[in-house]
Amino acid sequence: MHVSISVNGEQVSREIEPRQLLVHFIRETPDLTGTHWGCDTSNCGACVVQMDGQPVKSCTILAAMCEGHEIRTVESLEVDGQLDPIQMGFHEQHALQCGFCTPGMLMTARALLDENPNPTDLEIRTAISGGICRCTGYKNIVSAVRWAAEYEAAAKQEV
């Protein structure tokens, strides 16, 4: 079947099998292998992308279901060479080690801050609880999200 999906603002059209998972559709798009997968059961969150602004697990969505929807992946965060504050926060606070869960964590955290610009630690922990990180023990991820929230609050005040 033919599908046409908006990925990071660009229309990607392709002939696919109806059974193709969104994560594979994305990863088969040139230069978009930042979205990973780590389990087969919607438990690990490595595959999280945003669908119409909400974080979703792309291993548990058919590509066919996404026509007409906006998909955003980790590759969309940096705009014109300017990192998103959430990317900056992860770097500043050492919130990644092997980097494998990072894209999913970034897309989840970005959506959290879009909805709740000043989350508590518990709200951050809850928001990322659909993702597994084997390296960081989550402590620095929480710090990174807080860092990004504070950065964005400060930036807003400056305007």
């Binding site: 969150g45 999280v48 697990k57 659909g130």
Partner: peptide, 9 residues
């Protein structure tokens, strides 16, 4: 129920 990301779908 599950986790917040799953609950979005």
């Amino acid at each position: 129920i599950a986790d917040p990301v799953v609950r979005n779908r």
